[in-house]
Simulated scan of single mutants.
Amino acid sequence: MKVLVVGANGQIGQKLTEMLNTHEEHTVLAMIRNQNQKEVFANKGIETVIADLEGSVTELQQAIKGCDAIVFTAGSGGSTGADKTLLIDLDGAVKTMEAAELAGVDRFIMVSALQANNRENWNEAIKPYYVAKHYADRVLMQSNLTYTIIRPGGLLNEQGTGKISVGEKLERGFIPREDVAKTIGESLTNEHTKNRSFDLVAGKDPITEALNNL
Results as ranks from 00 to 15, higher is better:
Asp89Cys: 11
Glu98Phe: 10
Ile88Ser: 04
Gly104Leu: 01
Ala113Asp: 10
Asp106Gly: 04
Val111Tyr: 02
Met97Asp: 02
Ile109Asp: 04
Asp91Glu: 15
Ala116Tyr: 05
Asp89His: 09
Val105Phe: 06
Ala100Tyr: 08
Lys95Ala: 15
Ala116Trp: 07
Phe108Ile: 05
Asp89Phe: 07
Met110Asp: 03
Met110Glu: 04
Met110Cys: 08
Ile88Thr: 09
Gln115Ile: 00
Gln115Leu: 08
Leu114Asn: 00
Val111Trp: 06
Asp91Arg: 15
Gly104Asn: 13
Met110Ser: 10
Leu114Thr: 08
Leu102Ser: 12
Glu98Ile: 09
Val105His: 04
Leu90Pro: 04
Thr96Tyr: 10
Leu90His: 07
Gly92Val: 09
Ser112His: 06
Asp106Tyr: 13
Gly104Ala: 02
Ala113Asn: 07
Leu114Arg: 09
Asn117Lys: 13
Asp106Val: 13
Met97Arg: 09
Met110Trp: 06
Asn117Trp: 02
Ala99Met: 07
Ala113Phe: 08
Ile109Asn: 00
Ala100Met: 13
Ile88Gln: 01
Val111Ser: 02
Lys95Tyr: 10
Val111Ala: 05
Leu114Asp: 01
Ile109Gln: 03
Val94Asn: 11
Val94Ser: 07
Ile88Cys: 01
Leu90Trp: 12
Ala103Ile: 12
Val105Lys: 01
Glu101Tyr: 08
Glu98Ser: 07
Lys95Asn: 15
Val111Glu: 04
Gln115Tyr: 00
Ser112Val: 06
Ala116Glu: 01
Ala113Gln: 04
Glu101Asn: 03
Ala113Val: 13
Lys95Glu: 13
Lys95His: 13
Ala116Gly: 13
Ile88Pro: 05
Gln115Asp: 09
Val105Glu: 07
Asp106Gln: 15
Val94Ile: 15
Ala100Leu: 03
Met97Asn: 02
Met110His: 06
Asn118Met: 12
Ile109Arg: 05
Ile88Leu: 05
Met110Gln: 09
Ala113Met: 14
Asp106Glu: 15
Thr96Pro: 11
Thr96Glu: 13
Met97Ser: 01
Thr96Asn: 09
Ala113Cys: 11
Met97Lys: 09
Ala93Gln: 05
Met110Leu: 15
Ala116Arg: 05
Val105Gln: 01
Asp106Pro: 03
Val94Ala: 07
Asn117Gln: 12
Val94Leu: 12
Ala93Tyr: 04
Asp89Lys: 05
Ser112Arg: 03
Ile88Glu: 03
Gly92Glu: 12
Lys95Gln: 14
Gly104Arg: 05
Asp89Leu: 08
Ala103Pro: 11
Ala103Gly: 14
Asp91Asn: 14
Val94Arg: 12
Met97Gly: 00
Gln115Val: 01
Gly92Asn: 10
Met110Lys: 07
Ala116Thr: 07
Ala93Val: 06
Gly104Thr: 11
Ala103Asp: 14
Asp106Ala: 14
Ala116His: 03
Ala113Gly: 07
Ala100Asp: 11
Phe108Thr: 01
Asp106Trp: 14
Ala103Tyr: 10
Met110Pro: 02
Asp106Met: 15
Asn118Gly: 00
Gly104Trp: 03
Ala100Phe: 04
Asp89Met: 09
Gly104Ile: 07
Gly92Arg: 00
Asn118Cys: 05
Ile109Ser: 00
Leu102Lys: 13
Lys95Pro: 10
Asn118Lys: 12
Asp91Thr: 11
